[in-house]
């Protein structure tokens, strides 16, 4: 008889503060202003971001863990916090020179950086949720449509 290992979701949160500006360099100043409103103000603005990483997997019988949280912390520190915390995303990170750092795009970008490192023997990345404020968040599950 094949046993079905129970799947458990584990979520770890981290916080960082960063500045950004919604601006599409291919557009006129007027169009940027019209589409993005105050998010287009020339010097940018900032948020206290909260990022939640959820990993799903079966429980390793040796440790009782789906994943060692220290491992998530290390990956988040290296891929997210050390790169983004107290930075101006548009000005300081090359990936945002030609891509608007919206909450939606941040969810995808964080997924793409951490998902390959979270493919463990028992677990995989399930969800990245990024909260720009307590009232607004975006989630990415690695989902793609043709």
């Amino acid at each position: 008889m094949i046993s079905t290992p129970a799947q458990v979701h584990v979520t770890r949160k981290a916080r960082f503060s960063a500045a950004h500006r919604y601006h599409n360099p291919a557009w006129s100043a007027e169009k940027n202003r019209e589409v993005f409103g105050p998010c287009n103000n020339p010097f940018g603005h900032g948020h206290n971001y909260e990022v939640e990483v959820t990993v799903v997997g079966s429980v390793d019988p040796a440790t009782g863990m789906v994943i060692n949280l220290r491992e998530i912390d290390k990956i988040l520190q290296e891929e997210v916090i050390s790169r983004m915390d107290h930075r101006h995303l548009n000005e300081e990170l090359p990936e945002w020179r030609h891509r608007v750092p919206t909450t939606e795009n941040l969810a995808i970008a964080i997924w793409e950086r951490i998902a390959p490192r979270l493919l463990g023997g028992y677990s995989r990345l399930f969800r990245v949720r990024i909260c720009e404020s307590p009232d607004l968040y975006a989630e990415y599950f690695g989902e793609e449509t043709p």
């Binding site: 607004l136 968040y137 975006a138 989630e139 449509t145």
Partner: peptide, 11 residues
């Protein structure tokens, strides 16, 4: 196309 879920809270 990558699919994203956006959640906004109202009171």
């Amino acid at each position: 196309m990558k699919v994203v879920y956006l959640t906004r809270t109202y009171r």
